[in-house]
Design a binder for these strands. Structure first.
Length: 379
RNA sequence: GGUGGGAUAACCAAGUGGUCAAAGGAGGCAGACUGUAAAUCUGUCGAGCUGAGCUCUUCGGGGGUUCGACUCCCUCUCCCACCA
């Protein structure tokens, strides 16, 4: 029996309702993964994670290797035990840091040489290192080392990054086999690169498919390009990925973007948006995001979103605004609970509508309300 | 009673003859944030005009010197310190 089973497909789009089995449990898809880069979803405890309905969280190879070190985590019983989270964990490879810490790195065929953003020490991350670290962390889903192109990017440069990503993917697969990753039921996902070029996206997806990995990701999106271009890249890659494997779009997106990518056949997502915006005072509502720092919430006794039930919605906008304005740390926790719940709840509804067979009309109406609400506030 | 120090934008605080509507901070109001070097960053905050810009009113009160004063002089008021 496969680790990925598709239960239902949407009659009006390429969306599908499926489930992905990992050593720490089954993930119902479409799924949103909370980002816990440094072995914590900022401001939340594992109890909160369960409460908001998290099925799986993402953590990061680069950061955990720098501090506290993957060997230590392994000694202490692995990442799950270390952080007190017993459900699945996906670890990002550090490939994205190639992009986001670009001033501190040098890329060669062997891998990436970083200057630590913490103390400037030089560190090397190649395919083998990257897999070894993720194996030590004990992640359920490891990611291959990839090279994320900046935006904009010349076709030739994008091709080179793509070629390197494909070579590294094969090396990562070998390393993962050697580490016994697959034997223990853990997964390795390859990553499609190719920047904004549909031909590269298609080629990359087609050339990665024969590796026959447990899943495929679409990377290098939402790095500054306009939304239509981002969705076009997802579509270009997704249509050439194996139907029977999970597809994970890395690092996105806004709620409407998630629904649109589901329609393009994407199954998994992760994004810092709900937690970061929470820390910056923004809360998600069915009518678009609101900035609680705004004066209009000063005396508002209503909850952020009356249609949603979570720990935070018992409080008034006025109270939450007060916490944000006063710089209280509880503001971070409460708003993160709400925002993460908002995203996870959206995925739950999407799954329900996929099962009911009315995903496309539902998603269209949902986006219309969200985007009209946001627009109404702007005017 | 004497001597010295001080009063700057609704708060703190620089400036000490023109480049000052006046640094900086705090605070207010808005904006950004998409595989987290982010509880971060950006803009804006005397008034009026839609505005690059222009006009008007500001540095305790009053008077003076000067082409020109937040900056110099006189005086008054209030605060602070020390001496009586």
């Amino acid at each position: 029996m496969s680790h990925f089973s598709i239960h239902k497909t949407d009659p009006a789009s390429r969306a599908r309702r499926a489930a992905l089995t990992t050593p720490h449990g089954i993930i119902q898809t479409p799924a949103f993964m909370l980002v816990g880069t440094q072995a914590t979803v900022k401001s939340l405890t594992p109890a909160h994670l369960h409460e908001v309905g998290a099925q799986i969280i993402l953590s990061n190879t680069y950061h955990l290797n720098l501090r506290p070190g993957s060997t230590l985590v392994k000694q202490l019983g692995g990442l799950h035990r270390f952080m007190g989270w017993d459900k699945p964990i996906l670890t990002d490879s550090g490939g994205f840091q190639v992009f986001s810490l670009s001033k501190l790195r040098k890329i060669t065929e062997e891998g990436i040489r970083f200057r630590s953003h913490l103390d400037g020490a030089e560190i090397f991350l190649g395919p083998r290192e990257c897999i070894r670290i993720q194996a030590e962390l004990g992640s359920d889903i490891a990611m291959v080392l990839d090279e994320c192109s900046p935006y904009p990017c010349a076709h030739e440069d994008a091709r080179q990054a793509m070629e390197r990503t494909i070579r590294w993917a094969a090396q990562c697969k070998d390393a993962a086999t050697d580490e016994g990753l697959f034997a223990s039921g853990r997964h390795l996902f390859a990553i499609v690169q190719g920047s904004l070029y549909p031909d590269l996206r298609a080629e990359c997806a087609q050339r990665l498919a024969p590796l026959d990995l447990p899943g495929y990701a679409i990377g290098g999106v939402s790095v500054g390009e306009p939304e239509p271009e981002m969705l076009a890249q997802v579509e270009a890659a997704a249509t050439h990925l194996p139907l029977e494997k999970p597809r994970y779009v890395m690092g996105v997106g806004t709620p409407p973007q998630l629904l649109r990518m589901i329609a393009l056949g994407a199954d998994m997502f992760d994004c810092v948006m709900p937690s970061r915006l929470a820390r910056h005072g923004t809360a998600f509502t069915l009518d678009g995001p609101i900035n609680l720092k705004n004066e209009r919430f000063k005396e508002l006794g209503a909850p952020i979103e009356p249609a949603l039930q979570n720990y935070t919605t018992q409080f008034s906008c006025a109270y939450l605004r007060h916490l944000v304005v006063a710089g209280e740390m509880l503001a971070c926790t409460l708003l993160t609970i709400h925002n993460e719940h908002f995203f996870l709840n959206l995925m739950e509804e999407a799954r329900a509508h996929l099962e009911a067979g009315d995903y496309t009309p539902w998603a269209t109406a949902w986006c219309a309300r969200y985007e009209n609400g946001a627009r109404r506030r702007e005017s």
